[in-house]
Amino acid sequence: MNLDGATAERVRRILGSPVVRARAVTDRGYAPNQRWVVRTGAGRSAFVKVARAPLTASWLRAEHAVYSGLSAAFLPELLGWDDDGAEPLLVLEDLTDATWPPPWTRDSVDAVLRTLDEVHATPLDLPVIGTDHHAAAGWPVVAEDPGPFLSLGLCSPAWLDRALPVLLEAATPEALTGTATLHLDVRSDNLCLRGGAAVLFDWNHAALGNPQLDVAFWLPSLHAEGGPRPEDVLDLDPAMAALVAGLFAARAGLPPIPTAPRVRVVQRAQLGTALPWVVRVLDLPPPDGDPV
């Protein structure tokens, strides 16, 4: 994926020097944006992200609003922004030389937890999560149409019939609410480590809510990448495990998204650790007797 001339010119106007080298970034993020690390004739490097669709353009504008409204160590430095009304362009500092997990160590896990504590204590003007948030709809959606979830082969219909009442009761929507600043998309492709702390990217889902949510939605991907089990990282409200597992259970078995084909793959991997987690936390029988 080459950097086209029009995009290169927009970057030149922001950085004040022509782009002489551009490397496409294809191993971060799952939205259909285009990403590059560029170097200018003046020797400056930067990370560039362009939204090519209306939905992702709205997400990029939301992300830019966070960067422009706050300067903090857990944010990359904002170098520039250009919104032509159709395909907004964001330019951030280049953090290629930072540490990008996995692999995970206890020190790196603790670094993310400390950074999330800082995020949660930082006031921002953001939308407030309500009990109608999509994270509350997981197990109710599965109960209404269990086909996509069962198609994943993680349990039998009989096991689901027995477990659903417990899962529905545990996944209380009220557990979503709160006043903490949340990133709401903490995964290894959205963070790096620098100076013993985490730097977080992709703030388009940021909102105000229960601070346990950020940790809870990170833990399944952490474990899937070789990190510790969720309950070995932090003792969370059981509702968190139920809400997280429900969200992935309702989505992982749906058809692939043509513009973002890796999303279902990632959701399936996260469900693969989130479902055993909620089974252990709620003391449910292992699906069909298989070890959890």
Rank of each mutant, 00 (worst) to 15 (best):
D4P: 02
A8Y: 05
R10N: 12
R12H: 15
R12A: 13
R12M: 12
L15N: 01
S17M: 02
S17D: 09
V19T: 12
V19Y: 03
V20F: 02
A22C: 02
A22L: 05
V25F: 04
T26D: 07
Y30R: 07
Y30L: 07
P32I: 05
P32K: 10
R35A: 14
R35V: 02
W36P: 04
V37E: 08
V37D: 06
R39H: 08
G43M: 04
S45R: 14
A46C: 05
A46T: 00
V48M: 00
K49P: 01
V50F: 06
L55Y: 13
T56I: 09
T56F: 01
L60C: 08
R61S: 07
R61F: 05
E63S: 14
S68V: 13
G69L: 07
A73Y: 04
P76Y: 01
D82N: 13
D83C: 14
P88D: 13
L90E: 08
L90M: 12
V91K: 05
V91D: 06
D94V: 02
D97H: 14
T99Y: 04
P101M: 09
P101R: 15
P101C: 12
T105D: 15
L113V: 15
L113N: 15
R114C: 13
T115D: 11
T115V: 11
E118W: 11
E118N: 08
V119K: 03
A121V: 10
L124W: 14
D125H: 09
V128P: 08
I129C: 04
H134D: 11
G138E: 01
G138V: 00
P140K: 13
E144S: 13
E144P: 05
E144L: 06
P146L: 01
L150F: 08
G153T: 06
L154P: 04
W159P: 08
W159F: 04
L160R: 01
D161V: 11
A163P: 03
V166G: 09
E174C: 04
L176S: 05
H183W: 11
L184D: 11
D185H: 12
R187H: 15
N190V: 04
L191D: 15
C192K: 11
A197S: 13
A198I: 12
N204M: 06
H205M: 09
H205E: 09
L208M: 03
N210R: 13
N210S: 06
P211C: 09
L213K: 09
V215A: 03
L219I: 10
P220D: 14
S221W: 09
L222H: 10
E225Q: 14
G226K: 12
G227R: 04
R229Q: 15
P230H: 00
E231Y: 06
V233D: 07
D235I: 12
L236W: 03
L236G: 06
L236C: 10
A239W: 12
L243D: 10
V244M: 07
A245W: 00
A249C: 05
A250M: 03
R251Q: 07
A252S: 06
L254Y: 00
L254S: 03
P255F: 10
P256F: 04
P258L: 06
P258W: 05
T259R: 11
A260P: 11
R264H: 03
V265C: 08
Q270M: 14
L271S: 02
T273L: 01
P276V: 11
W277G: 02
W277V: 00
V279D: 01
V279H: 01
V281N: 14
D283R: 13
D283T: 15
L284G: 01
P285H: 14
P286F: 03
D288A: 04
D288I: 05
G289Y: 05
